[in-house]
């Protein structure tokens, strides 16, 4: 494991912790898209189908369990926790799941490395992860007051993707394995979706101003 991969995983973990902090401690999910959180739960459920059959390392198993457990508990909190649920911006969070899930499923059935159930599900999870942030970005654009934790959460998620790209570049030059088009293109698309957000995030940081995305 190289430093970019570890840093990527740690920023991913930090993003989840920031979100859990907001939800669990402040008891608020204002500005957080339930749609995106549900899509992430689906991403991890379909990607880690082999969690108990394909052992890679203690680290991998623990991290998979953390991402699975946290994503489903975040969804539960927003939907079922009395106080947290009250802060959910339901009327603003209007993105339709199916517009995202169906194209990803069709694409995974058409473009995959092997046509088996597990492989298609794994590929589907890659495509889905690439676009799962869209409802969250739409909600951010509609939110007038983006609080610090929400901004940091999205920033950390974007940073995790950018670091994974550096990890692939590093691995490409240091390990002799072939090219992983599906993983790379999906990952690149995912990272590009954050470009606009990054721009305004750094602007607000530089000017010491509140983060606001233009509509």
């Amino acid at each position: 494991m190289n430093i970019f991969r570890l840093a990527g995983d740690m920023t991913h973990l930090a993003s989840v912790l920031v979100l859990l902090l907001k939800i669990h401690t402040i008891k608020s999910c204002a500005g957080i898209s339930l749609k995106t959180q549900e899509l992430y739960a689906l991403v991890f459920a379909t990607r880690y189908l082999d969690i108990f059959t394909n052992y890679i390392s203690f680290y991998n198993t623990i991290m998979k369990l953390i991402f699975l457990g946290s994503s489903f508990s975040i969804v539960w909190y927003i939907k079922r926790h009395k106080i947290v649920h009250r802060s959910y911006d339901k009327d603003q969070d209007t993105f339709r799941h199916w517009f995202i899930v169906l194209p990803c499923l069709v694409l995974a059935l058409l473009i995959n490395e092997r046509f088996t159930f597990k492989e298609v599900m794994w590929t589907f999870s890659l495509y889905l992860e690439a676009v799962a942030i869209l409802p969250q970005l739409v909600l951010l654009q509609r939110t007038r007051n983006i609080d610090n934790l929400t901004g940091q959460y999205v920033f950390l998620l974007g940073a995790y993707r950018a670091l994974y790209i550096l990890n692939w570049i590093y691995r490409y030059f240091t390990e002799d394995h072939y090219i992983h088009w599906i993983t790379w293109i999906a990952g690149l698309v995912q990272t590009l979706l954050y470009a606009d957000f990054f721009y305004y995030y750094f602007q607000s940081w530089k000017n010491n101003a509140k983060l606001e995305l233009p509509a």
């Binding site: 082999d50 890679i56 390392s57 991998n60 490395e113 092997r114 794994w122 994974y164 992983h180 993983t183």
Partner: peptide, 10 residues
């Protein structure tokens, strides 16, 4: 498996 390399990632 053809894609085992990327499957060691999260």
């Amino acid at each position: 498996s053809s894609s085992s390399v990327t499957k060691d990632e999260l």
